[in-house]
Amino acid sequence: MNRPKNKEYKFPTHIDDYPTGPQYKAGFLPETNAGWRKVRPVVDHEACVFCLRCYLVCPDGTIFKEDGKIKIDLDYCKGCGVCAHECPKDAISMVKE
């Protein structure tokens, strides 16, 4: 799995449900970050030349490659707009949620 997916967290009801000390599964994500977003990136695949600049500079790593196209994991995109700003072809636009 290339990126962790949002997972359900079972709230502990007994003390033994807690891990022994502060240690837990790497990449366990019970929460998404989608609620932070005011604008979302929309990719114009016609204009995109798949240079991967956006993929490289995304602070949250939410841009990924699929079938030769750029995709965005909107569960974890915070809508910062770095991808759109850095795109040499203006192929990403930020639209209101």
Binding site: P4, N6, L29, E31, N33, D60, G61, Y76, K78, C80
Partner: peptide, 10 residues
């Protein structure tokens, strides 16, 4: 490094 709570654009 995924699903972190850093500010947008960090």
């Amino acid at each position: 490094f995924y699903g972190h709570k850093a500010c947008a654009g960090c």
